[in-house]
Amino acid sequence: MTTTHETTPMKHRDAVGIVRTTLAKIGRYVFIGFVIVFFALPVLWLVTAPFDQAPALRLSVPEFTLQNFQVLIDNPYALRSMWNSVIIAVGTMAIVLVLAALAAYALSRVRVPGRDILLYSLLLLSSIVTGTAAMVPIFVLITELQLIDTYLAVVLVMAGGLLPAAIFILKDFMDNTPKSYEESARVYGASPLQILRHVVVPIARPGLATIAVWGVVQVWGNFLIPFILLRSPEQFPGAVVMFTFYTEGGQPNLALISAFSLLFSIPVVLLYLFVSRRYGFRFYGGIKS
């Protein structure tokens, strides 16, 4: 490169740079666009298909009708299964919340040798408990306990699977509550349960709310455990009942499935919005002062 031509290649290089950054930008937006479409399509289908006269596995402007919901109401299992889902979800959530709160509080306050190892191994094992690998032993266990075809079986197995993670998250909230709060209440004569009720629970409330919603969502969408542990169709929760919506010809009954899907997702969305507005979601503890 000679000195006389020094400016031209510099300009050239600038131009190349601009083109390159522009192309990179375009590429990035196109990629983001694809990702958005990928995630948005199912949601769009979810809100349009239920109102379509002939829903299919594609997106189209619906020929508006509420007929699909009429079919849904006429189905003997559809609405009942929603109620079953509520029972199982709320039952599991209640067990997880109470046990996890107490366990997390105790683990956070009492020195237990090997506590962290215990927590981490529980967390690791919990994914196996509710996972496919342990389904056979769980089925055998529940059969031996004569709990097969009961809500209790589903609730217990689901709660067992969720507890370690719940304890793990809540313990962080409890750890970040200064001990002096409790000691202060103790000096004024509060009993341990009063301390828990007046001080610890209110401070850990965002954590408890997060765990409650997370627990409900986990149970709400779970198919495998109720499918294996429940026998009678009138006990099936929504996630399992959806699996039975077929036409006589053996084709998926998309009218029923789409309407049910929309109905099935509404409670979770509402719950999420309510808790998010009321308490705010947080996965860490601590006090803002």
């Binding site: 000096v187 004569g189 007046h198």
Partner: peptide
């Protein structure tokens, strides 16, 4: 501690963050 008839002020004051000043003062 609750039966000793003592009151303690902590270094970090240990005021309950979710209670108003009135509720804090009247907690005992």
């Amino acid at each position: 501690p609750g039966k000793r008839d003592v009151a303690m002020v902590f270094q970090d004051y240990a005021l309950f963050p979710h209670m108003s000043v009135a509720d804090n003062i009247s907690y005992p």
